[in-house]
């Protein structure tokens, strides 16, 4: 056994090894060069940036800490506050997204849902009534309540036909509906969302950002986890069920541990999305809840982009994510979508 070399098609020969390293090396350069450029730009004086390219600190220019000093010392609290907000909002929303997403994904991969089209139709009727009520001048909570009431009433009043008959939406349709919520471009969504949170009195709170990020990233979480959950073998769950475990116990103590790599990778991805989001953050925050991407974008003002400050901010923002990526890398390495359990 000791002699057995793992013979996969990817077990490279000598030539393959050289080619592989060459390609990987080139792509590493492609990835790292822009980051290197950001790094040295953060130590340049404006005149060193504007007067044509210089490449090597201490080589062809003398680095200066002016930009770092400005961001970290002069602006201290104006940098720290958004930074703290970004951390809190990013972590909270990603954890929540993952929790809701994992539950929903488990449901979508283990149950057969049938949402009758008639229910969808009644729901639309409810919405129409709510809209009509608002147009007639009813306060919005009342309008929403009346719409909901109509929907529930209609739903209860209509005779329940057998589940097998009649057109219905299935799991795949629900999943597609979820992902379709990401199709509208953000500019079309942001004003209504603003109005929504304004009516709820939640503007400029971190909670508003958390809620909207959870809603925005849930579809992605569900879709990434779905392929993963499907591949977890059912035998374990079946035997647990026969032993009397509830669905929740099965999910918590069997499925989630098995799905850990997928969960971690998904977490990392939605965390990155929440960490970097700009437009919703711009509108839902004004002073207390501002996040870092706003600060980055703000460096392009009346005097043109302030490259040096912008570089510092981008580097500050990417730091924790890299740390997290390194810490979680071993999990991702075990597979994002398909479990290590398989095969």
């Amino acid at each position: 056994m000791a002699l057995r070399v793992r013979q996969t098609p990817y077990g490279p020969g000598m030539l393959g090894l050289v080619v592989s390293y060459a390609v990987l090396g080139i792509w590493t350069l492609v990835v790292l060069f822009p980051l290197y450029w950001l790094f040295i730009t953060s130590f340049k004086l404006p005149v060193q940036v504007n007067d044509g390219p210089v490449y090597l600190p201490f080589g062809d220019f003398t680095p200066s800490l002016h930009a770092w000093r400005y961001i970290l010392v002069d602006l201290r609290n104006d940098t720290l506050r958004p930074y703290a907000n970004t951390v809190i909002v990013g972590l909270t929303s990603s954890v929540l997204t993952l929790a809701l997403g994992a539950a929903a994904t488990y449901g979508l991969t283990r149950f057969n849902y049938r949402v009758r089209l008639s229910s969808v139709a009644w729901f639309m009727v409810g919405i129409a009534i709510a809209i009509g009520a608002v147009r007639l001048g009813l306060p919005w909570p009342l309008a929403v309540a009346s719409g909901l009431a109509v929907f529930v009433l209609l739903r209860l009043a209509m005779p329940r036909r057998g589940d097998a008959t009649g057109r219905a939406l299935t799991n795949a349709d629900i999943a597609f509906w979820m992902i379709s919520q990401r199709m509208l471009p953000p500019v079309a969504v942001v004003i209504p969302i603003y109005i929504l949170f304004q009516r709820l009195g939640m503007l400029d709170t971190r909670a508003a950002l958390v809620v909207s990020y959870v809603a925005a990233n849930l579809p992605i979480a569900v879709w990434l986890l779905r392929d993963y959950f499907r591949t977890i073998p059912l035998e374990l769950e079946e035997s647990a069920a026969i032993d009397g475990a509830t669905r929740y116990q099965i999910l918590w103590s069997i499925v989630l541990p098995l799905a850990l790599p997928g969960l971690v990778a998904t977490f990392l991805f939605i965390f990155v999305l929440a960490w970097n989001e700009y437009l919703l953050a711009l509108f839902l925050s004004s002073a207390n809840a501002q996040t870092m991407p706003l600060l980055v974008a703000a460096q392009n003002a009346t005097r043109g982009p302030q490259w040096w400050y912008m570089s510092v901010l981008i580097l500050l923002m990417i730091g924790p994510v890299i740390a997290m990526a390194i810490a979680l890398e071993r999990f991702i390495a075990r597979g994002l979508l398909l479990g290590a359990v398989r095969g």
């Binding site: 711009l282 509108f283 004004s286 706003l294 974008a297 703000a298 392009n300 003002a301 009346t302």
Partner: peptide, 11 residues
């Protein structure tokens, strides 16, 4: 209170 220049009017 400050917001990015490009979005001030909208805001």
């Amino acid at each position: 209170i400050t917001v990015p220049f490009a979005d001030l009017y909208q805001k």
